[in-house]
Design a binder for these strands. Structure first.
Lengths: 346, 346
DNA sequence: CGTCCCTGTGAAAGCGCTGTCACAACGGCA
DNA sequence: TGCCGTTGTGACAGCGCTTTCACAGGGACG
């Protein structure tokens, strides 16, 4: 910066003022400084600037993975927004428990960012507490924490509506396939199960624990097992609500292989509306991670700007049922046909 | 840091030494300092540290998008590697040309990172030149630039092998479907076309410009148009090599809709081996972006460590043909049957 | 015509660290 | 016993900026 000052024949104070766009610089001097800066290829060192201002010009995000449709979409809308605000984006990917412990022990984000966005983690109370005295705004994304700024989709309502859709099609035996082991996402998982149960209860359909099974994501084999469990019940389901599109597609894949027609025999409903759903023409409950990323980014910028006032804002995003070709009105089950026959011939 | 020093009853110098793990600190003092630091929840400010050391402890990556299988995989292997090395990851997502120009004008990464990884861009000479005098190591990933460190998959060889696979199955009319408009990736695009052409040439099959068509990615409709062009040629292809799995799947989707059996009537080969390929049991040429991310990260760390020596390393990663169910030996075309018939009945 | 205020600029302090240098303490060796 | 090398620690300068404060130079106003 001293070089620029010399070249422009001014003091470093003036260079600093010019480069930050302060108005107290005369047009001619401004022009000279800008010219000099351009010629010298000069860029302000954020390190040095933040040392004195106390602001780092950086937003940190804590994510369980970068390799998913969900995180990709969210970050893809978050990043340009931050860039437009002159902020840098710092990514901490914490895939496993070991790294996670280490992260919360050292909190490397402390003092190295102006705000932290925590995506999709199931934080312990202790972890939340540690984030609290981090000395910077923390925003919880895709999860809600009481008393802290949060941005999330209403998973309960989403699952409620999805289940209602199936109920409205006449289904009564509706299975719910949970996903386990997707580290960082079990928050949504519980909420979705809750919505499913609420819908059944409000419709007067008794909950049947047998109809709720777990599977691990990304495995056709695991899906086959879950499917087998459901298909070998005394009273198998006529519809399956999968907590994630990927699982729904795996179920459909296995059903087709078994020649069980979807949706004629069994309806399948997913949750997420990721691209895969479109490829398989899957009925699903849509959420928009890119909206979430944008909302989270805007909230972060807001909190950074007026860190004085107490923001305790919760942004709740909607979800929508997208009916496609994998859900259909319930077909009379074989069992029922039998019973009818039996009843009409005494 | 002054607080920690006071609490531990030592000077800030000693605290600094302790926290950086230098050996010249006695065990007892070390313990005292670490305890104090823990109690005060202290984390060193990278800003201040980098101001004096000149190293930022940050690696910047320039990516065209964050919302793709490719970038997700690559960053997912890059991020933990950097974290393990105590480095932060700074992401610049440059989706469009406007942002790109702005990025290269201001080069915000200058002095704010120790190395820059440039993913999948088709840089102009001027842009490359600007990166050159950035004052930090620049590594080109998923592209190769002469004289600069690069990490990339051998797309030419991949396409060559893929095309050979089709040739070996007896296909002679092999179409190539290019992808346009995927900003930041046309580098691979050209290389893949080249490999396709090489394979045909080496097999003595004449190149036919009609068999090379373009489509835009992510659109079933666009794929349908390309397909239509190929199916309405005087001599339509018996195999289609798509530059990307996503396009290949879109082609298959349209072919199935049209009741043209794959691979019985037309073989389809993709490139990438992304998860979608597995879902559709698509034959494809596999590449590993996660390997690429890892290699790029390791190279970056190496270059940061010994910035003195001139590294001009190129890391070339392999690709493999993965035959699945969408490629099969060529079936006698209707045209040939006719001709045979015609030839045998003069 | 003198005073006051406003505008634009420079000098200098200091942000939180690191790294050099000096120095105290101690043990080994002559 | 005196000297020297070794080890551990503290004082302090300075990294590249921002920001306060002081101040010069003009107009406006009484």
């Amino acid at each position: 910066m001293a070089d620029v000052a010399e070249r422009a024949g001014v003091s470093t104070s003036t260079v600093s003022r010019t480069l930050r766009g302060l108005s107290t610089v005369s047009p001619e001097v401004r022009a000279r400084v800008e010219k000099a800066a351009r010629e010298l290829n000069f860029a302000v060192s954020r390190q040095a600037a933040s040392l004195v201002t106390g602001r780092t010009g950086t937003v940190a995000v804590l994510v369980p993975t970068l390799n998913s449709w969900f995180m990709g979409s969210a970050l893809s809308s978050l990043a340009p927004l931050l860039r437009a605000a002159g902020m840098q984006l710092n990514v901490y990917e914490i895939p496993d428990m070991a790294e996670r412990t280490s992260f919360f022990e050292h909190l490397p984000a402390r003092r190295n960012a102006d705000a932290l966005l925590v995506f999709s983690f199931d934080l312990t109370d202790e972890e939340t507490a540690r984030l609290d005295d981090l000395g910077m705004p923390v925003i919880y994304v895709s999860q809600h924490v009481d008393g802290r700024p949060s941005v999330y989709v209403d998973d309960v309502a989403g699952a409620l509506h999805g289940t209602r859709h199936l109920l409205n099609l006449g289904h009564r035996r509706i299975a719910f396939v949970q996903t386990v082991g997707a580290s960082g996402f079990s928050f949504s998982s519980n909420e979705r199960l809750l919505g499913y149960q609420q819908a059944l209860t409000e419709a007067g359909v008794p909950l049947d624990a047998e109809l709720v099974v777990s599977t691990s994501v990304g495995s056709k084999r695991a899906a086959a097992e879950s499917l087998g469990t459901l298909l070998s019940l005394r009273e198998p389901p006529t519809a399956i609500f999968a907590e994630q599109d990927e699982v729904a597609v795996a179920l459909i894949w296995n059903l087709r292989k078994t020649q069980i027609p979807v949706p004629d025999r069994i309806s399948v409903l997913g949750f997420d509306d990721q691209p895969l759903a479109d490829w398989f023409d899957l009925s699903t409950v849509a959420q928009s991670p890119s909206d979430m990323g944008r909302e989270a980014g805007e909230l972060a910028l807001k909190l950074i700007d007026d860190s004085g006032t107490e923001h305790e804002r919760h942004v709740v995003l909607p979800s929508y049922v997208i009916p496609r070709s994998t859900t259909a009105p319930v077909a009379p089950a074989r069992g029922e046909e039998d019973r009818e026959k039996g009843a009409s011939s005494p």
